[in-house]
Computed example of a mutant assay.
Amino acid sequence: MALLWDAVATQNARLLTRGLRSLPNKLDRATWLNYLRCHDDIGFGFDDQDVLAVGYQPRSHRRFLTDFFCGEFEGSPSRGLPFMRNEVTGDARICGSLASLAGLEKAMQEENPVAINIAISRILMLHSLIFSFGGIPLLYNGDALGLLNDYSYQQDPAKVSDNRWVHRPSIDWQHAERRHQSGTVENRLFTALRWMIAIRKSLDAFADFNNRELLDTGNEHLLCFLRSYQQRPSEQVLVVANFHSTPQALPVDVLRRRGLDFTAPLIDVFTGRRPHQIEENILLQSYQFYWLKQV
Results as ranks from 00 to 15, higher is better:
Gln277Thr: 14
Ser121Asp: 15
Ile130Cys: 02
Asp208Glu: 13
Phe83Met: 05
Phe68Ile: 01
Asp150Ile: 09
Asp162Ala: 11
His127Tyr: 14
His175Cys: 01
Trp165Gln: 01
Glu177Tyr: 06
Ala119Met: 04
Arg79Val: 10
Leu145Lys: 06
Phe190Arg: 00
Phe262Thr: 12
Ile120Ser: 03
Arg227Trp: 03
Gly90Pro: 10
Ala53Asp: 15
Ala102Tyr: 02
Ile116Thr: 04
Ala107Phe: 02
Ala92Thr: 11
Glu110Ile: 00
Leu20Arg: 06
Ala158Thr: 15
Asn242Val: 04
His167Trp: 01
Gly55Ser: 10
Arg200Leu: 08
Phe206Cys: 06
Leu16Phe: 12
Pro58Trp: 09
Leu101Thr: 00
Leu255Ile: 12
Leu238Cys: 02
Leu284Gly: 02
Asp28Pro: 08
Ser182Val: 10
Glu177Phe: 09
Leu189Asn: 04
Arg274Ser: 15
Pro265Tyr: 08
Gln174Ser: 10
Gly272Met: 10
Gly19Cys: 02
Ala176Lys: 06
Asp253Asn: 10
Ser245Asn: 14
Gly19Asn: 11
Phe133Thr: 01
Ala205Leu: 05
Gly90Val: 11
Phe64Asp: 11
Asp48Gly: 05
Ser60Asn: 09
Leu33Trp: 11
Cys70Met: 08
Arg164Asp: 02
Tyr35Gln: 05
Tyr153Thr: 08
Met196Gln: 04
Pro157Cys: 10
Gln154Gly: 05
Leu15Val: 13
Pro233Tyr: 07
His39Gly: 07
Gln181Trp: 09
Asn12Gln: 14
Ile130Lys: 05
Asp6Lys: 09
Asn117Ile: 00
Asn112Cys: 00
Ala119Thr: 01
Val295Ile: 09
Cys95Val: 09
Ser128Gly: 02
Ala198Phe: 07
Thr263Val: 08
Ala92His: 10
Ile282Gly: 05
Arg212Ile: 13
Ser202Gly: 07
Thr17Pro: 05
Arg122Pro: 12
Gly134Gln: 12
Leu3Ile: 01
Arg63Asp: 01
Ala99Ile: 09
Gly45Thr: 03
Leu226Cys: 08
Thr263Ile: 04
Val166Met: 08
Leu36Ala: 05
Gly96Ala: 11
Ala207Tyr: 12
Arg93Cys: 07
His39Tyr: 10
